[in-house]
Computed example of a mutant assay.
Amino acid sequence: MTKEALGGMALIGATLLALAVANLGGLQAYEAALHAEFGLSVLHWINDGLMAVFFLSVGMELKHEMVDGALRKPSAVALPGLAALGGMVVPALIYLWIGGPVQGWAIPTATDIAFALGIMALVPGVPAGLRSFLLTLAILDDLGAILVIAIFYGHDLQVTWLALALVPLAGMVTLMRLRQDRTWPILALGAVLWVCVLQSGLHATLAGVVTAFCLPAHSRSGGHPLHDLQTRLSPWVAFAIVPIFAFANAGLPLADLSLTGADGVIALGVAAGLLVGKFVGVFGVTVLLSRFGLALPAGVGWGHLAAAALLAGIGFTMSLFIGGLAFRGGEEMNAVRAGVLGASTLAAVLGLTLLRILSGARGKGAV
């Protein structure tokens, strides 16, 4: 089993554990542990601290692909990039059309990279071009989510702290230009940047992406500092950081769940945005662009694209993350959890089923 598949299984396991704890008598202890204070609450450290490392990893992967990988040519980014845009706009419109509270519009716009690629990795014989398409789409989708968080979910902007953030940023850019093999000085300045951004009122995870883009892809000695760090960090992200986030944010008490009235509208809006909006946005934009001459990746058919569009509806990590910013807790957040978990599960099952059907047909020689 591949690392991506194992990471997906770890994520599923952490989610099931959170649901079990929240519903089998451990809810009070679970919530008490998450709200214990160590300067910040444990939940705050997870959502602002560990997730900054997650976005550091996302940023490193994107920069590596842009410098040395499949995204070196702008033409390679056009199709998944515009599909990602469609996959953000349509879900938001569906959520608002259903009548969800305005502050939650961004919840169904996100795709969970680890979960989506983990599900895809469970199917043998998937075209390499399809994985590259979904990876690019999910990365650009998550970076779009970071911009949304920075612009729409900041609070009480502190200009002094924002100005102070320019100091470590300038230091990181200077070190990047020196192209040294050592990455720890940039990471140390990135930690200072994280503190400044946290205090500024912008969301602290933005510091992770900025730090990633300041890491040198190549050193003067011929090394690859960015890729080397990404390789060392990725197992920690897949098997520790993302599962810890899932465990901390997926604890939905089912016995107390009420999906009537306003809470039901939130859950329905989130679920429809992820399951229907993502599919229509990603697949619809891809079909439209193909009419204007943009070709599908090599070896990828429309059935494969439909499966990828379904898997893009697995919002999970990022959708829960944005939900926590939009709704600080209580019944509204439980409605978000219900919508995200329900839609993400169904999107995963449908996408996996379609990929298995296509894989079986391909094995029998069907086109």
Rank of each mutant, 00 (worst) to 15 (best):
I139R: 00
L122Y: 07
V148A: 05
A106I: 11
G81T: 06
G144Y: 09
R131E: 14
D181L: 02
A150P: 06
I94K: 05
A114R: 11
L147V: 11
W184L: 09
G171P: 02
G118C: 11
A165E: 02
L79K: 09
P124I: 14
V159T: 11
G104I: 14
V89C: 09
P127W: 00
I119D: 07
V102D: 13
W97Y: 14
P108F: 10
L164P: 00
L169E: 08
L130K: 08
L135T: 15
L137A: 08
T160M: 12
F152G: 01
V123R: 04
I107M: 02
T111I: 08
V123S: 05
G104N: 08
L135P: 04
I98Q: 10
L169P: 01
G118K: 13
I151K: 04
Q180M: 10
W161H: 13
P91V: 11
L166R: 04
G86I: 09
M172H: 01
G86R: 03
A128V: 14
A150R: 03
D142T: 12
V90H: 10
V173Q: 02
L134A: 11
V159H: 00
L175K: 01
L175H: 04
W105P: 00
V159M: 12
I119N: 02
G171C: 05
A84R: 03
V126Y: 01
D156Y: 05
A106K: 07
W105H: 04
D156A: 14
I113H: 03
L85C: 08
I113M: 13
A128T: 15
A145P: 05
P127L: 01
P127N: 08
A145T: 08
A78K: 12
R177W: 07
R131Q: 15
Q158T: 01
A78W: 07
S132E: 13
A150D: 06
Q158G: 00
P168Y: 02
I94G: 03
Q158N: 15
H155Y: 12
A170F: 02
